[in-house]
Design a protein around this nucleic acid. Sequence first.
DNA 1: TTGTACGCGTTATCAC
DNA 2: GTGATAACGCGTACAA
Lengths: 339, 339
Amino acid sequence: MSIKKVAKLAGVSTATVSRYLNSPEQVKEKTRNKVRAAIEETGYAPNTLARNFRRGKTSLIVVVLPSIGDPFLESVMRGVWKVADELGYSILIRDTQSNSHDFDEYTDLVFSKQADGILLLASISPFGEAEARRGPSGQAHPPLVLGLESVSAELSQFPSVRVDNVAAAADGTEYLIQLGHKRIGFITGKPDSLLTHDREKGYRDAMHKAKLNVAPEWVVEGEQTIEGARRATRQLLELEQRPTAIFCANDEMALGALYEVKQAGLRVPQDISVIGFDDIRYAEIADPPLTTIAQPAEEIGERSMRRLCEAIEGKENNTAAETVPHRLVVRKSSANAPK
Amino acid sequence: MSIKKVAKLAGVSTATVSRYLNSPEQVKEKTRNKVRAAIEETGYAPNTLARNFRRGKTSLIVVVLPSIGDPFLESVMRGVWKVADELGYSILIRDTQSNSHDFDEYTDLVFSKQADGILLLASISPFGEAEARRGPSGQAHPPLVLGLESVSAELSQFPSVRVDNVAAAADGTEYLIQLGHKRIGFITGKPDSLLTHDREKGYRDAMHKAKLNVAPEWVVEGEQTIEGARRATRQLLELEQRPTAIFCANDEMALGALYEVKQAGLRVPQDISVIGFDDIRYAEIADPPLTTIAQPAEEIGERSMRRLCEAIEGKENNTAAETVPHRLVVRKSSANAPK
DNA sequence: TTGTACGCGTTATCAC
DNA sequence: GTGATAACGCGTACAA
């Protein structure tokens, strides 16, 4: 009823008002002025609900991430938002921590037109039932891009943007080995996190390549939280032959590890080296400043979002996995192995 | 076109399918079964776009916050999401850091039916033009609740949920005064943050009450970032008569301050006490663990969100300001004043 | 209890 | 360049 009101007031048809809003260059200047005046007078704002309905598009994108308030994701999201603003999308965030949704619930968001696409920045259970939905839905799968996380076989058909976590973790491990460390502990994430699996694999690969043994008790679960990492660290420190270095699958856990090592009266890095992964902003001001592996977070966000938008707009269906470079950042929490 | 398909397949009318979805009790069991079968067979998912359009409701809520990846906001958002899930809303996040929108852009989201309401967890520029829009829009203002932040006069008409920042900061300051500190520095936030203004006021009030002078150079801007706080701290340390204690308007800045004090070769808390505000999860594992003022973050999120939903659903227009309790958490970063 | 038919506000497809 | 009008898919008043 509203575009009609404006149209009547301006003495034009609704079609013209619509054109004025969406492709003003198709409207003669004189008409444009009439319409503009009418819009200003009424304070008219187009009803987005109706517009989306008509266009069959929500301009909403769901970003699925493990937990908001993750300092690393902040940088990624900055990149995501940049592209979203540029291309006119809004971002709907779902975290997998507070809510335990399964994958279908996310794909449903697209099939039921609540969102146009999904940017998956978290590990979640694989395709499951959604696979069955390929038929009815008409399209094979919803527009979906994976950022950060490694891909399970089920999801390997989708485009992705991430660092090579295996290689990066291997680099970090090799760095410790070069410092003379032989007993290196690894604090991994949750069991279902493919990402931390990959990092663990990189660690194991590097150890193996250097012909160093990995005792089973050296690899401990840290649940990707400070608390979990603190527990894990205490376990490592109680070992008869405790590690001289601890590699944490992310910085959040490394900060917890740092605390517990110092709490136990040991010095970092003289007694134990600690390194992390992600280079969050707290790494630099940790005590001692944390050696870690940096990812180009904002770039990952930007590129994955861009590819998602392309997929939505049907411009590309390039399903290639895109790898961005990582970088070892050496700070004070790592040093030569003791003795 | 889709509800029709289901209806045809089930041999009923579209109205019946619609009823099946929205008020199943109005449908006879036998019919229900037919419809259910048809829905399962087709994999039908109702078009949310059409539904929202028809209902005139988006079930979307915009949460405006200073910056995602703020560890404190994570807890607040947990509370927000809890209520959102319960009541069937989705959350659309806008941060004021990466994007600089003004207030009108947020109210427009509601007026143009992109969202049902606004939860404001950040200080932003006051009403401005939106005030003018009261007429045409029909309603006085969009559903809006303030969480965390203090309110400017323009926004005082809206419901709010927060701690008493003035009183809390006064408590923290008094605590330092009791420890014998007389020269207490304050690192404040951005000039336009009402929140940190209030905390600064609490600090000044407490100093004044204790008949202690506040030298102008003791109050420094820290921009609400680690970097800013580090700069501010260096300034304070260079003072001829440097403070024996530093009160930071939030923990993020306190972590930066902690780093710089140690960097300068001073000991915390023996030479300088440092306290923060918010009790983020990194406060406990800081070195030394940070004394701070805790807010019931999740509760703030939950209550403010609940009030917003009530406002949207027209259940209440209680515009009272709700105050939740704060709590001083004493850890190792604060001690008696030196000498 | 179920079916028919209309309208929500916008955009797109035609003619003119 | 502009206007008339038919969709878009769903909910609901009303009739049966």
